[in-house]
Simulated scan of single mutants.
Amino acid sequence: MAFVPICVQCGTRSNPCRCKVVGPTLGFVAFVVAGVVEWPLGAAVYLFRRRKGRRIMGHPASVVYPRVNRAIPI
C-alpha cells in the first residue's frame, strides 16, 4: 500500500471554489524533492558558513513550496 499525500487549502481567492487541492499537493511533493537535495547540502555548508547553510536549508520552505502552490490555481 502506497502513501499518497493529498493537501487541501480552503478559503483561497484564486479560484471560484475557494478550495485548492492540486497546487498544495504538488507544492508538497516539490518541497520534499528539494529538501532531499538541499538539506544535506545545506548541512555541509553550515559547518563552514552558517548563514549561507541556513539559507540553503530554508529554501524549500521559503521559495519552492510557495511558488509551486501559487502557480497552480486549482
Rank of each mutant, 00 (worst) to 15 (best):
G11K: 02
F28D: 10
N69C: 13
H59R: 13
A71C: 05
W39Y: 12
V36I: 15
C17N: 11
S62P: 01
S62C: 11
V22L: 13
Y65I: 04
K52I: 15
L26E: 04
Y46R: 13
V63Q: 08
E38G: 02
F28H: 12
V36W: 08
P60T: 08
F3S: 11
C7A: 12
G53H: 02
E38D: 05
R49P: 01
G23D: 03
A44I: 05
H59L: 14
C17A: 14
R13Q: 12
M57H: 01
R51P: 01
V68A: 09
V22W: 12
G11N: 08
V64P: 00
I72C: 09
V64F: 02
G27I: 03
N15D: 09
W39V: 15
R70L: 11
H59F: 15
V45W: 06
G58Q: 03
T25F: 05
V36D: 04
P73D: 15
F48V: 10
N69E: 13
W39L: 15
V22N: 08
A44Y: 08
V21D: 05
V68P: 00
G35E: 03
L47Q: 12
V22S: 05
G11I: 04
G42D: 07
P16D: 06
K20F: 01
I72V: 15
A43E: 09
F31L: 15
K52V: 15
R67D: 07
A2Y: 10
V45I: 15
A43Q: 09
C19Y: 00
A2F: 10
A43C: 09
C10V: 10
V8A: 09
G27H: 03
V32A: 14
P24K: 04
C10K: 12
R50A: 13
F31Y: 14
V63D: 09
S62K: 10
P16N: 11
G35N: 00
A34K: 03
G35W: 01
P60C: 06
V45L: 11
Y46G: 02
R49D: 13
V21I: 15
